[in-house]
Nucleic acid binder design. Structure first.
Length: 477
RNA sequence: CGAGGUGUGGCUCAGUUUGGUUAGAGCGCUACGUUAGGGACGUAGAGGCCGCAGGUUCAAAUCCUGUCACCUCGACCA
């Protein structure tokens, strides 16, 4: 929702410079601090609390589907990384190598994991013998390192936190089913908890994961119309199984290769929360993921009884994540602070309110002021938070819809891409040459071939030959 | 990896062109007091060998050489 006036001077407005706005918000909300290690960020308590909320809820979703957590080593021996050809070619340019232990040079270099497929495969080769050992549904929460050229907080850092799920199945069908199932877990989580609508679909061969048979993705649209790949789920077929010799004996005593999947979501999703919901006053957090859901701000707090009342209300609201800002800053300061941090609502309590046995509840997203009797503040707060959560999703959906266009030829495509930020739905012949040409000419990449297909036209937007699929195109982070 | 740019108290910067007393400002920080419904005010104070290493000079934040780091934009990626 557009703000009438800019209340926080330190934050660059997003219309002026979106990238700078993003950096300002990340810093002012105290999510991160830059560290002295190039490309690595320090996640501060508030940022980490946000990650913990994401982690806790997503982890529960995984476990509900039978997934178990494990922890794998940080290092991968070079020989292990080399086993799957496409995989090593995809990751070799960006891995960090450990060459020495103390003063001694290692016999074999170790890479700091950029992802752990190889380690999981190595494990599976050892522990899977029979069809009775399947499926294996493992996940780990960890950090990985990718030596990126340019970095940005949350969106791309040298080290980042994520989870990586790795599963092994007896059949191809079961693996494909799991791949789609986990993609849906991500998409549902993003909609329900983060209030971010996702486009679900399949990646083109060019964009798929190194070593995968198929990669599925959820793509979100940021406020500036750019795409953010927010989670991926890969079907590996039996490619890794053949490279790592992961075989089991089936019911008929025949040796079979397993079929595998992997799927991941990272701290990058925090970047999506910022860029989908944030405004010119700072962060706006969906109530279901906010570390603090309501900040009680006492007015004239040194007046008799004000602070006591504030604590009393906090106690009353103990089912919610509520804090009292009893610092000796001015109320105006506290308002701004609450807004920069995206705390969903603030509750103002001053002498006038106490007289009337009420509080002023102000929504962060709309700044709507709601006068609530202290007798019914619990029910009202629950209502307000719920309404805010669903309003945020609706707004994000509306933004996605209103910034999605269709193009039937390159003239239309180029027209849109240079004038209107957003996604373009257009047909494709599935020839990589066209995908490359579109990227060269417009800077837009194929985001995905969505599950929900439409027939925009019969022919490829680029070459005009018969089309095979509809693709979402867009500029991406 | 290509092209630009920047390094001066915690932050944002001025000062460098033309070397010259004791290096400045705003914000923030500390103490005390007055305040308080959208970033209050007063008083007092703390905090910098100007990224680092050499060099030129009577004298270097300023000139020279080297080096490191970071930022922006491109090519690669969650």
């Amino acid at each position: 929702m557009a703000q009438e006036k800019k209340l926080v001077e330190e934050i660059t407005s997003m219309e002026e410079d979106f990238a700078q706005w993003y950096t300002d918000v990340v810093k002012k909300a105290e999510l991160i601090e830059y560290s002295s290690v190039k490309g690595c960020m320090i996640i501060r308590p508030y940022g980490y609390a946000l990650w913990e909320n994401i982690q806790r809820q997503l982890d529960a979703d995984f476990k509900a589907t039978g997934v178990e957590n494990v922890y794998m080593p940080l290092f991968i021996p070079e020989s292990l990384l080399q086993k799957e050809k496409d995989h090593v070619e995809g990751f070799a340019p960006e891995v960090a190598w450990v060459t020495h232990g103390g003063e001694e040079k290692l016999q074999e270099r170790l890479c700091v994991r950029p992802t752990s497929e190889t380690l999981f495969c190595d494990l599976y080769a050892n522990i899977i013998q029979s069809y009775r050992d399947l499926p294996k549904l493992y996940n780990q929460w960890c950090s990985v390192v990718r030596w990126e050229k340019t970095t940005r907080p949350f969106l791309r850092s040298t080290e980042f936190l994520w989870q990586e799920g790795h599963t092994a199945h007896a059949t191809e069908e079961e693996a494909i089913e799991r791949t789609i199932q986990m993609l849906n877990v991500y998409a549902d989580f993003c909609e329900r908890v983060l209030a971010i609508p996702m486009i679900k679909g399949k990646k083109s061969d060019k964009e798929k994961f190194a070593g995968a048979k198929s990669t599925y993705t959820i793509e979100a649209m940021m406020h500036d119309g750019k795409a953010l790949q927010s989670g991926t789920s890969h079907d590996f077929g039996d490619g890794f199984a053949r490279a790592f010799d992961i075989q089991y004996t089936d019911k008929n005593n025949q040796l079979q290769y397993v079929h595998q999947t992997s799927w991941g979501m990272s701290t990058r999703i925090i970047g999506a929360i910022i860029m989908v919901h944030g405004d010119n006053s700072g962060l706006v957090l969906p109530p279901k993921v906010a570390p603090v859901q309501a900040m009680i701000i006492p007015i004239a707090q040194n007046k008799e009884g004000v602070l006591d009342k504030a604590y009393e209300v906090k106690e009353k609201l103990k089912d919610f994540k509520v804090k009292v800002d009893d610092s000796d800053k001015t109320p105006g300061w506290k308002f701004s602070e609450q807004e920069m941090r995206g705390i969903p609502v603030r509750i103002e309590i001053g002498p006038k309110d106490i007289e009337k046995n009420q509080a002023v509840v102000v929504r962060r997203d709309t700044r709507e002021k709601i006068f609530v009797s202290l007798d019914e503040i619990e029910e009202k707060l629950a209502e307000i938070l719920e309404k805010m959560q669903s309003d945020m999703l609706e707004r994000a959906k509306a933004h996605l819809a209103s910034h999605t266009y269709t193009a039937k030829n390159m003239q239309e495509f180029e027209e849109i891409i240079s004038n209107k930020p957003g996604f373009i739905k257009a047909m494709w012949c599935m020839d990589e040459a066209c995908e490359n040409e579109i990227k060269d000419r417009t800077g837009a990449t194929s985001r995905c071939m969505p599950f929900e297909q439409e027939n925009i036209d019969d022919n490829c937007v680029c070459c005009g030959k018969p089309a095979k699929t509809m693709v979402y195109w867009g500029k991406a982070y």
